[in-house]
């Protein structure tokens, strides 16, 4: 018998041992095989679990959690959002910007991760469609967004009006006294941060953010360009620096994660991979899944989110960044 055949025989014998069945004596067994089998017999009889001190308490806690948990989000059908179109776009911008910038300052959320699909940039992609409700951190305090009467926020009002000087406008969302806002050119000359800009954007999409769309908080620098259409289709392209010490989790349905090459780099496309909770005109939370493209390039993390664009269109935009 060669080694492979011995290994196959060993697997069969180990299964017998693990089933609690004894193996008959066989004086013709190969000496090496006999050694392996003796070790397997010892291991099969070895149970260390009685030494655990948490078995009962952990069980009790987990079962309690099942009884009390509730969902964070559930995707809805497209077009089912009872929100004025313009308000929806503005709320998108505010919430997503708040999410991205706040995420930079939060501690890692690895405690909630389970089935790791991939690590990319500062994010770990984990397989999950439903997670237990977690109260937001005490310091999570995004700027309130006017919703009930459909009035756009102060920030958006300032940036949407070309006659208003954005540099003298109100504080961006979320406010951070240490944050700098710069134009791409200023970011390049002052911080050495080269914000990649698209040379292809699908028809109908218009940039709606402040020309100073590069934000710097300490060593963390990010650019964030937001485009919308008259039909409220939404597109955002972000580029951020990151370090290797913090990780943030994306919970996704692993069946909707596609690994691909973006600009020569490993990347991911996640269909509906970034569900966003936004406020409708009545002040209610609604959940909207965004398609998401992400990759790491030159030490920067890139993420593109879009409400209506396909993977192919998003890839075309990504390939056109310069």
């Amino acid at each position: 018998m060669n080694e492979k055949m011995l290994a196959e025989q060993l697997e069969r014998d180990i299964e017998r041992l693990l089933d609690g069945r004894a193996l008959p004596d066989d004086p013709t067994r190969d000496a090496d095989y006999q050694q392996a089998l003796e070790a397997a017999q010892m291991l099969a009889q070895h149970d260390m679990s009685p030494e655990s001190r948490v078995r009962k308490s952990l069980r009790q806690n987990l079962l309690q959690r099942i009884s009390t948990q509730r969902k964070v989000w559930s995707p809805r059908e497209k077009g089912a959002y009872p929100m004025k179109p313009r308000t929806k776009s503005f709320v998108f911008v505010g919430i997503l910007t708040a999410f991205l910038l706040t995420a930079m300052t939060l501690p890692p959320v690895r405690a909630f991760a389970q089935d790791l699909l991939k690590e990319i940039g500062p994010y770990i992609i984990v397989s999950e469609t439903e997670v237990p409700w977690e109260e937001p951190p005490a310091d999570f305090n995004p700027t309130p967004i006017p919703g009930g009467d459909g009035e756009p926020s102060e920030m958006i009002a300032a940036t949407a009006d070309p006659n208003v000087d954005p540099s003298s406008g109100p504080t961006p969302i979320p406010s951070n006294p240490n944050a700098q806002t710069l134009t791409p050119q200023e970011a390049l000359t002052q911080l050495g941060f080269k914000a990649l800009l698209p040379n292809y954007i699908p028809d109908g999409y218009a940039l709606i953010v402040d020309p100073k769309f590069v934000h710097a908080v300490g060593d963390r620098i990010s650019s964030s360009m937001v485009y919308t259409t008259s039909e409220d289709a939404y597109l955002q392209i972000t580029q951020t620096t990151f370090d290797d010490t913090s990780r943030f989790a994306f919970y996704v349905d692993d069946e909707k994660v596609i690994e691909l090459i973006i600009r020569g780099q490993d990347g991911l496309f996640m269909e509906g991979g970034l569900p966003m909770t936004v406020l409708d005109e009545n002040g209610n939370n609604v959940d909207i899944p965004l398609n998401c493209l992400m990759w790491e390039e030159g030490g920067h993390f890139f993420m593109m989110t879009a409400s209506e664009l396909t993977q192919a269109e998003m890839l075309k935009i990504a390939e056109g960044l310069k």
Binding site: R65, A111, Q114, E128, E130, D254
Partner: peptide, 10 residues
């Protein structure tokens, strides 16, 4: 088991 609980739905 914490991860199993949160991920078992998927």
């Amino acid at each position: 088991f914490e991860r199993v609980l949160t991920g078992i739905g998927s």
